[in-house]
Every structure is written in structure tokens, then in C-alpha cells.
């Protein structure tokens, strides 16, 4: 190896190390702060010592954190499930069927992706108000039941689905609806799982829309965080503890299903 390529390698590693520390440090600091004793919250020591769970106790006492976490989970799971189902049905139709205006419809579907959230949030808000769904979880979930991203990704995935397999299933006596569930879904399950995880994480991290719909209550944990920020200053300890709890499911999901998630992101980027 020449010194030149060696130098380049070392530089690469240094840059990557610096970047990962920059990414990971805030998260570390979040958990470190949440584990400090209440008096030490503003301490700048790298290692929190002595450890204390007092902040977590305060978070649970102050606020219904458990209920908020459960609500967040419901919102995330239901919107992801809805998006997955709509995406699957639409993508299947677009990929397996030929019908008039197929391209146009598909482009319109995907075009909704280009419409910024800010353009649709007010009409959606007004509609929810008319329907009396403000301040409800349903109001958070329903406008998010369909995502162009889900349709786009699944359609691209199904475009590569072997057509002979669909033909074989038809010859073997299955209706189109049956083929979807007995052939297509089992075969593309890895892709569905990956997309599902992506959608759950996105929905879990959603802040702005729940904040609009749920202005009075603190029904999801991301909003619960607000209650620790007051005019007299922020209650850092419990705030960090709640934030830590809010991140936890995503981290766990990530650690357990790392391979799937990386795949999902790569797919969404490359295909």
C-alpha cells in the first residue's frame, strides 16, 4: 500500500469517526442527563454519577407518560398499517393490471407526494373541525392513512415481481384478490416488513400534525414534552427522561430489525 492511499484511508476514518460522534453525542447526552440526580441536571461531567431514576419518576408523576406512550404507539401503528394497506392495494393494481389512464392515475397518486404538507394542513384541519375530530387520535390518524411514498415504493417493488408467477396463479384457479393474499403478499413480505418499519418510525416521530390536532391535550408523547417547558424555564430532568422514553421504542426497533431498516432506506433511495 502506498502512503498516499494509506493517508486517504486514515483521513476517511477520522472524518467518519467525527461524524458519528457528532450524531451520537446528543443522544448520549439526552440519556446521561435523564439519569443524573435532580440536583446535577446542569452538571457537565461526561459520566453521570451518581445514577438516579428520579427524573423518570418525576416524568411519570407529572404526566401520564404511560398513556401518552400507548397513544403514540396506536397512532404510529394504525397510520403505518393504513399506509401499508393502501400502498399494497394501489401498487398491486398499478403493477398487475392494465386499465385506461393507468399512468395518469399513478402520476397523480405520486404527485401528491410533491404537494407540501403546509398546503394541505389547513384544508385537512378545517375538514377535521367540521367532522368533529379535533382533539381525537382518529383526527391524527385518518389524514395519514394513505402515503404516496408507500404506493411509490411498493409499486416499484412489484414492477419487478415475476409476471409468470401471477399468470401461474391465475391458471391454478385463483382470483385476482386471492392471488394478492396467497402469492404476492407472502413473496414480498420482506419488502412489506421493511416499509412497515419505515412508516412506523416516521409516524412515531411526527410532531407537527399531532400538535395541530391535539392542541389542548397531551395525547401523544411528543406533545407531552411541551409540558416540561415553562415560562419560568425548562424542567430539564423529567423532559430528558420523557424524551428518552419517546426515543426508546424506535431504538429498540432499530436494533432488532437493523438489517430490514437499512434495506428499507436503501430501497427508498435507490429504486
Amino acid at each position: 500500500m502506498t502512503t498516499d492511499t494509506r493517508l486517504r484511508r486514515i483521513t476517511g476514518h477520522v472524518v467518519l469517526t467525527v461524524l458519528s460522534i457528532a450524531c451520537a453525542f446528543p443522544i448520549y447526552w439526552l440519556y446521561a442527563t435523564s439519569l443524573r440526580a435532580p440536583g446535577d441536571v446542569h452538571s457537565l461531567t461526561i459520566l453521570p454519577w451518581p445514577l438516579s431514576t428520579a427524573n423518570y419518576a418525576a416524568a411519570f408523576a407529572n404526566n401520564d407518560v404511560a398513556r401518552m406512550l400507548a397513544n403514540t404507539a396506536i397512532v404510529a401503528l394504525l397510520s403505518a398499517a393504513g399506509q401499508l394497506l393502501v400502498g399494497l392495494l394501489a401498487a398491486y393494481a398499478f403493477a398487475a393490471w392494465t386499465f385506461p389512464l393507468r399512468r395518469t392515475l399513478y402520476l397523480m397518486f405520486v404527485g401528491t407526494w410533491l404537494v407540501p404538507f403546509q398546503a394541505t394542513m389547513l384544508p385537512n384541519y378545517v375538514l377535521l373541525a367540521r367532522l368533529g375530530l379535533l382533539e381525537t387520535l382518529a383526527g391524527v390518524i385518518i389524514p395519514n392513512l394513505c402515503s404516496a411514498l408507500g404506493v411509490l415504493l411498493l409499486r416499484e417493488h412489484l414492477a419487478g415481481f415475476p409476471k409468470e408467477l401471477l399468470d401461474a396463479a391465475r391458471m391454478d384457479g385463483r382470483s385476482s384478490w386471492n392471488i394478492l393474499w396467497t402469492v404476492v403478499v407472502p413473496v414480498i413480505r420482506p419488502a412489506l416488513a421493511a416499509l412497515g418499519i419505515l412508516l412506523v418510525i416516521t409516524a412515531w416521530n411526527e410532531y407537527f400534525w399531532p400538535a395541530m390536532v391535539l392542541q389542548r391535550g397531551n395525547a401523544v408523547v411528543q406533545l407531552g414534552l411541551r409540558s416540561f417547558m415553562g415560562t419560568e424555564g425548562n424542567d430539564w430532568g423529567p423532559l430528558m427522561a420523557t424524551a428518552g422514553l419517546a426515543c426508546l421504542p424506535v431504538f429498540v426497533l432499530y436494533l432488532v430489525l437493523q438489517r430490514h431498516i437499512v434495506q428499507a432506506f436503501v430501497r427508498s433511495g435507490l429504486k
Partner: peptide, 18 residues
Amino acid sequence: PQRRDVAMVFQSYALYPH
């Protein structure tokens, strides 16, 4: 096709992988 009484063998075999 599902109501025609014919069976087909495909070039790619088209076996259900799952």
C-alpha cells in the same frame, strides 16, 4: 383462465417461492 380446463407449464417454472 381459472375457468378454462387447461394447465400451463411456464418456461421459468413460476414456482411459488414461499
